[in-house]
Design a protein around this nucleic acid. Structure first.
Length: 271
DNA sequence: TTAATCACCTGAGGGC
DNA sequence: TGCCCTCAGGTGATTA
């Protein structure tokens, strides 16, 4: 579920409720997530004020003066703002309760997500310090992508999904961006010329921006903190459309496993 | 150093 | 109806 647009939507949804608010309680029901939840999490947070809610890659950061809570939604996680003391359901693993009696609830069916505490600057955390550029900043340029792709023999789809190159591009948006840029997902990264990189960078930025505008993509289980689905799924051009006609040329969309991930493309439009 | 594969967990959906 | 199998949006660790 959560790629960059979904995490951005989630951060925007919880930000107004949390900034300026003070942690008054933390309840951890399930410590065994992707990484074990810090047993001292409550002690770290009690009495601290949230000064900002930011995003780095697919991580949502609750920043305080002492450090940050790093939240990752994995494949099935989501965050909800609820009244404190709302009865917990299945897969409701962590509750952050605030002084105004609101609660941020972390729910994750598959437990691939993470709730971590980072002392000091979260960007120095081992998970975040080696990440690539943010795709929606001016740092993500065609020249940057072209330079990174030199001598890389992996498929371009795998390349743009690697967070060390560019962050936030997951399986859905990788397929969509490559379709928009007319580039076959199986092409080796190093085979892209500067003009290809120009189209691909523009496509990634466009697809992500459109998805954020529409509240992300809901395929199965993504809901914003307010409980709303994302509507970008209605704009998908190739993802999940195997066998159906390409919207441009009517050729059946093909599906292929690339890097063990389902990939969708038009064999005529994409070269 | 790079590329490919594995593992983590749960539930939906299809086939029998 | 129930059992079994496959698959799924992420990503760090391990292996070659």
């Amino acid at each position: 579920m959560p790629e960059l647009p979904e995490v951005e939507t989630t951060c925007a949804g919880i930000r107004p409720h949390l900034v300026g608010n003070v942690f008054s309680d933390v309840q951890v029901r399930q410590t065994q997530l992707r990484w074990a939840v810090d047993a001292q999490l409550k002690q770290h947070l009690m009495g601290l004020k949230v000064v900002s809610v930011t995003r780095r890659a697919k991580y949502c950061l609750l920043n305080t003066a002492q450090g940050s809570v790093i939240l990752h939604l994995g494949m099935s996680g989501h965050l909800k703002i609820l009244p404190a003391n709302t009865v917990a359901g299945k897969h409701d693993h962590v509750d952050f309760v605030f002084a105004d009696q609101k609660m941020l609830r972390f729910n994750d069916q598959r437990k691939f997500g993470a709730v971590l505490w980072a002392e000091g600057n979260p960007l120095s955390h081992s998970l975040l310090k080696d990440l690539g550029v943010e795709p929606l900043t001016d740092d993500f340029t065609p020249h940057h992508l072209y330079q990174l792709a030199q001598n890389r023999t992996i498929p371009i789809k795998t390349f743009i999904m690697d967070g060390h190159n560019v962050v936030g591009v997951g399986n859905i948006y990788a397929s969509e961006s490559l379709f928009m840029a007319n580039i076959l997902p199986t092409r080796k990264a190093a085979s892209l010329n500067p003009h290809d990189c120009e189209r691909l960078v523009a496509a990634i930025k466009h697809v992500l921006q459109q998805a954020i505008k529409q509240g992300g993509t809901t395929l199965k289980d993504f809901l914003s903190p307010a409980g709303n689905p994302g509507y970008f799924s209605q704009s998908l051009q190739v993802y999940g459309r195997a066998g159906q006609g390409c919207y441009r040329c009517q050729t059946p969309i093909q599906q292929l496993k690339i890097g063990q991930r389902a990939s969708y493309f038009c064999p005529v439009c994409q070269q």
